[in-house]
């Protein structure tokens, strides 16, 4: 009986092995380049978050004068497991301009990766950029739009932010579009968690 299964399925098994090998080769050949592209993309967002630059050319120009040091911090979570944050220390001519934290969390359709900006004392949010998202096109993917992201700029860090269709309280941000409350709230949750986790560690990172 088992031999019969193998006779039937040998082609599928052979193809699965061959394709697996081919994809592993593709990943090892192009993986480093893809990672470098992601790093460059993230770095280009940093001037916008810290200095408020707009446009790629302006960001590239600003990057020339910035000194960006990346550090990783690992935190144990109450429910078990560990969370790793990459924290970028952004300085110019020896003066600390701010912090940018790479953080991730679950959205409606998949993982959302963000860059969250904080001023030097860690008291105010300076901006937000979306690195990775697979939210619903036309709805949740509007978390990338400047109109939504701009709402986080200059908010006090530590406010428990929530997404609302009609915001009126200081801790409420407008949803990115009607019908995308979960994606909008997911961004708020990631920002809240990131600030809670990273803010107490900034003094250590200053040293």
């Amino acid at each position: 009986m088992r031999l019969d299964y193998l006779k039937q399925a040998w082609l599928v098994l052979a193809l699965a092995l061959a394709f697996g090998g081919a994809l592993a080769a593709v990943q090892s050949a192009w993986g480093p380049k893809i990672e470098a592209n992601k790093r460059d993309f993230a770095q280009l967002k940093i001037p916008g978050i810290v200095l408020g630059t707009t446009g790629e050319a302006e960001a590239r120009e600003a990057l020339k004068s910035l000194k960006i040091d990346a550090r990783q911090i690992e935190l144990a979570q109450p429910g078990g497991g560990r969370t790793v944050y990459t924290v970028y220390r952004v300085a110019r001519a020896g003066e600390l301009l701010g912090w940018v934290v790479k953080a991730a969390g679950q959205g409606y359709a998949g993982k959302i990766e963000l860059l969250v900006g904080l001023d030097p004392p860690g008291a105010t949010l300076t901006g937000l950029a979306v690195l990775v998202q697979t939210e619903t096109p036309g709805l949740g993917n509007k978390i990338e739009m400047p109109a939504f992201r701009g709402q986080f700029r200059d908010r006090p860090a530590g406010l428990e932010l929530t997404a609302s269709p009609s915001p009126d309280a200081a801790n409420e941000v407008a949803v990115c579009t009607t019908g995308a409350t979960i994606s909008s709230q997911a961004v708020c949750d990631i920002v809240n968690r990131t600030v809670d986790d990273v803010k107490p560690k900034l003094d250590e990172l200053r040293k």
């Binding site: 394709f19 994809l23 990943q27 192009w30 380049k33 893809i34 993309f41």
Partner: peptide, 24 residues
């Protein structure tokens, strides 16, 4: 159909990785 899907998925993954590497 299983073979078709396996084949198509492999080449789509290659195309996806190519775009991410060279036309990010």
């Amino acid at each position: 159909i299983l073979v078709f899907t396996l084949t198509i998925a492999t080449f789509v993954t290659i195309a996806d990785r190519f775009l991410a590497a060279f036309i990010y």
